[in-house]
């Protein structure tokens, strides 16, 4: 007779979700993990963040060394925007003591996917404390 205890439905669910979480993490690391710089395009990827509120989407990005008058936002697809900014000076990897890779960077560039419909023509931007902020009003959903 087998001594194997029958597992409850809750234990099976718990194991399923744990495995799903581990798989998602591996998938994320495999697809999203990449250097934060691209030496061919001479760009560095700044940190960015997105917050969705009931009325608007607020995107921010930390742009160290950015020249304010060169910061641009443009849509690159239906649901993705790109932030581009020239840096005040060229940054080389050897400025950070890195000598095993070569590269110099003078542009900050990142792409951000917007998860809801927004009216890009009505966006408002500001640059304060090195943080670039974009406010995109959400498109009105239909009333129920």
């Amino acid at each position: 007779m087998s001594n194997k205890r029958r597992r409850s439905i809750f234990e099976i669910f718990e194991e399923y979700f744990e495995n799903l979480e581990k798989w998602t993490e591996r998938f994320r690391e495999a697809l999203i993990e990449k250097p934060s710089w691209d030496h061919r395009a001479c760009t560095m990827e700044p940190l960015s963040n997105i917050m969705v509120t009931p009325t608007e989407v607020i995107v921010t990005s930390d742009l160290p060394y950015a020249e304010e008058n060169t910061i641009h936002v443009k849509p690159v697809s239906e649901d993705t925007i790109e932030i581009l900014a020239k840096m005040k000076r060229k940054i080389r990897l050897d400025d950070f003591g890195i000598t095993h890779y070569k590269g110099g960077f003078q542009t900050l560039r990142c792409q951000i996917r917007i998860p809801v419909s927004v009216d890009i023509d009505k966006m408002e931007v500001r640059f304060k404390r090195g943080i670039f902020e974009i406010r995109l009003p959400r498109k009105q959903e239909r009333d129920i």
Binding site: M44, D62, P64, I91
Partner: peptide, 11 residues
């Protein structure tokens, strides 16, 4: 050195 720190600390 605020800007340099922010750039270095991204990763």
């Amino acid at each position: 050195k605020g800007e340099e720190i922010r750039l270095r600390a991204r990763d």
